[in-house]
């Protein structure tokens, strides 16, 4: 399988990365090189093989359902590029 220029632009938008025409054209070649490389997986018969979901055969530990942390508004906002009072601020999303 390979990608064309329109697919590159669609995927870039899905990934929320702005691309110029020039970027998209370069990426088309690079992505196709990588997709060409992974193509060899199709020669393996994987019928009846379970997909791996965990490398270690273990039961995932679960925490007790209790509040252990919180009230750290200042810490959480400390690295925000823009904030106001106790909120992150973003460009207007509702007209």
């Amino acid at each position: 399988m390979s990608v064309d220029l329109a697919t590159v632009k669609r995927v870039a938008h899905l990934a929320r990365i702005a691309v110029s025409e020039e970027d998209a054209a370069r990426m088309e070649g690079e992505l196709n090189a990588i997709l060409g490389f992974v193509e060899q997986l199709s020669e393996v018969d994987v019928d009846g093989v379970e997909p791996m979901t965990s490398v270690t055969p273990m039961q995932m530990r679960k925490r007790t359902d209790t509040v252990t942390d919180g009230s750290k508004t200042a810490d959480i906002l400390a690295n925000a590029p823009e904030s106001a009072e106790t909120f992150f601020t973003v460009p207007k999303v509702v007209e």
């Binding site: 938008h13 929320r16 990365i17 690295n79 925000a80 590029p81 992150f88 973003v90 460009p91 207007k92």
Partner: peptide, 19 residues
Amino acid sequence: DGVRYGLRMPGKDIVDMYE
């Protein structure tokens, strides 16, 4: 995504800001 930490570039709307 430019909201909680690190770099933020200006954009004409929120999606453009992310991109």
